[in-house]
Amino acid sequence: MSTQVLEASPTAPPERPARRRPRNRLGPPWLFVAPALLCYGAIVLYPSASGVLYAFTDWSGLGDWSFVGLRNFDSLLHDDRALGALRNTLLLTVAIVVVQNGIGLLLALGVHARIKSRMLLRAVFFAPVVVSPVMVAFLWKYVYNPAPNAGLNGVLGAVGLGSLRQDWLGDPSLALWSVAAMVVWQHAGYSMVIFLAGLEGISKDVREAATIDGAGPVKRFRYVTWPLLAPATTINVMLSTIGGLKIFDQVFAATSGGPGYATETLSTVLYKEAFVFGRYGYSTAVALVLALFVAAVSLVQIRYLRAREDQT
């Protein structure tokens, strides 16, 4: 890492002419990235790589272990709970990506307009982002109280929508979507901020030109704003996908994966296997599959979305 610097150091004042030589190395020296690499290597790469090793063992988390080859991966293929969790994880991710970004976009358009309360509303919509996800889950359990006159059901009743009352977290076919709604509430402000940034980046001239051309608000959005929001969309979709696939805190604190296995996700399975059931080796196999999965999905996404950006 220091060769670059050693090369550079003789080019001190006395050798001024050498400096004038066109340099093919205007890029910063390796020393710039060295601390980051060192820290990242020690805290993330090295431990994760050694963690991977356990995926091929029967380690319980305490005491001795022995190598079991690919047995953990084989069990994973036959583990109905893990496969169900995979399905739930995908459904949850799709719901979060679509709804969170959809709402985030609408909120961004709203608070980007010339309304008087826009600064206050930006803070309001962003506020849930700063609250700890576990606490958000505790809080939402009060909101999701199934009693007809409490929490969200109470509000629905009060505004004459009593027929929409639900057993939010208890109905196995609804629980996953209730968790998704909770996550969307917490993170829509995050998406909003990113879209807002995209909107601020679109020059006024472009939109005014479109207005003069007689384009209505819908057309303006469709043909001017939306294409120019492509980079913001890319980041939003990517971050919410990764967040959705790795989701743990909110699910675990809200339902622990229940009722039954209705809201079990890959992360809750991997947590339970490692620290509740004492099958650390197996859980590492789940973690590895999860990591590969997330990597593959994000790679495909980024390719597709970047290609879309380039078209605009």
């Binding site: 999701y144 057993d167 939010w168 208890g170």
Partner: peptide, 12 residues
């Protein structure tokens, strides 16, 4: 039991 025991928390 109360309605919806699966959606009812210990606190409730």
């Amino acid at each position: 039991f109360n309605d919806n025991p699966n959606g009812t928390t210990l606190e409730q």
